[in-house]
């Protein structure tokens, strides 16, 4: 048990992207899904109790170590340049894609009241948005959706973690 915790620790430490439970099970086949999730819970608690500079988080369908948010000012000094911020226009476009996916460009244009061609291209280049198919209407326009990278950047487990838009409407009224 202790040894298996250490193995999981090493696997997640060595992984470039969030490590999925399925991948962990391929390497530790003696555990079922629940078993792995139990180990992960214990491991996360160990890191939490240690009070170190990073912790284990479930993001974008997998598990990964992330530095503590309150330590960001120091880590930023280590990293190149300023953090890449998204413009308000890019964020609005991304929000429409995230909530309305799969969505065609014309629908995003209509919601935002402007042509989103430029911002959409930027989001595609940043791998936050991808083409997910074509709509079965005349002209077969491209349908857009968000990527795994989107979940990772915005630190979401999955899309259901997004607050629903109706909740937002309730806040306004």
């Amino acid at each position: 048990m202790e040894e298996d915790l250490a193995i999981l620790d090493a696997l997640i430490f060595s992984s470039e992207t969030p490590l999925t439970v399925e991948r962990m099970r391929e390497i530790l086949p003696q555990y079922d899904r629940q078993g792995i999730l139990g180990l992960l819970k214990t491991l996360a608690e160990h890191h939490e109790a240690r009070g170190g500079g990073f912790g284990l988080c479930e993001i974008a369908g997998g598990w990964q170590f992330y530095s503590r948010p309150d330590l960001a000012p120091w880590v930023r000094k280590l990293k190149a340049g300023r953090p890449q911020m998204l413009s308000p226009a890019a964020l609005e476009t991304l929000a429409v894609v995230a909530y309305r996916q799969p969505v065609v460009k014309a629908d995003i244009d209509r919601v935002r009241g402007v042509d989103v061609g430029g911002t959409l291209k930027g989001l595609l280049e940043k791998h936050l948005v991808r083409m997910v198919g074509r709509k079965d209407v005349p002209g077969r326009p491209i349908l857009y959706g968000t990527t795994k990278r989107f979940l990772e950047v915005f630190q979401l487990k999955d899309l259901t973690e997004l607050p629903t838009l109706t909740e937002l409407k309730d806040i306004q009224s």
């Binding site: 992330y66 953090p83 935002r112 937002l168």
Partner: peptide, 26 residues
């Protein structure tokens, strides 16, 4: 109303803990 909802959603996205801004990975 629809635009306002998405504008607010965009703000909420930006208020999240963001990778490479608030948290970092190896």
């Amino acid at each position: 109303l629809e635009y306002q909802a998405f504008k607010e959603a965009a703000l909420q996205l930006d208020r999240r803990t963001l990778l490479d801004r608030d948290v970092f990975k190896r």
